[in-house]
Structures are given as C-alpha cells and as structure tokens.
Amino acid sequence: MTDMELASHEWWERYKETVNDDPEMRVRGHDEFDANFYVEIGDERFLIQMDRGRVRDVVPNPGLNHRWEFGVEGSREAWEEFVRETPPPFNHEIIASHYRSAVRGEDGHLVLTGDNKRIFQNLRPFQRALDLMRVAHNGGGS
C-alpha cells in the first residue's frame, strides 16, 4: 500500500514519474499520445497534459486558459477502489466502470466525458495512463 494520499501533490509527482518511466508508453505508437485529459476526483479536477506519451504537467483546477479532449469523473470512493492493488469488480478498469454507469445506470462508478471519437482514437495509451495511477499508488505492479 502507498504511504501517500491519492491526488496529493507528492502523489501526482510520483504518478508523473511512473508514466514517464513506463516502457509500454514508449512503444506501439503510444509515444505519439498527445491528448490532454482531466481526472476529476470528487470535487477536485486535475488536468493531465500529455506530450508524446509523457506527462508534461499536472494542473490542478484547470480553467479557461486550458484545453482538454476528454476526461474521467468519479467520487473519491470510486477512485480509491480503482487504484487499489487488486481493484474490485467493476471499478478495475475505465471501460468496465463507465459501462456500469452509462449502460446499466449504476452509481459508484467512473464516467468518461468529452469527445468519444478522440477517446477511441487514443484508447490504449489513455487506458494505460489511467492504469498507471494504480501502479503509482502501490509503488509498482502491472
């Protein structure tokens, strides 16, 4: 387990390092992943600015001066489940979680927002970037 609080400044620093050191983000075209996305954890929003598969910056509370293409929103509880070392069904992956919200109308899961086309154009590196939140949170893993 991590000694850091999810989405604290130190936590995001570790996340940035995790993504930028991830071998999978360097290959199979994921090093072209350039789409900015946001992560909303409860009331807090963070903009993840991507630059060729690396996190350039994490901006808390992005505003009118910022741009993004898509995002993920959920309660703090849902995110805490998502980053758990062995996450519970169905908060274990973004499409799983979104499906239970969007198609089955359940509460307590994450929801995708923004341009669906851009999400599918960037699906795997975006999904990997989210899964790396779990790796960062637990100090390793896959």
Partner: peptide, 21 residues
C-alpha cells in the same frame, strides 16, 4: 471506423473484461 486504430481498440476495449488476478 477509418479514423480509429481498430486493431488495437478492438482488443483493448476488452482489457477490463479480464480479472486483475
């Protein structure tokens, strides 16, 4: 869809259908 890398997307849209264990 011609604007989507369906080789990869058809696979990884199913990634979370598998258990983390």
């Amino acid at each position: 869809h011609p604007h989507v890398n369906t080789t990869e997307v058809n696979a990884y849209s199913c990634w979370g259908l598998m258990a983390p264990q």
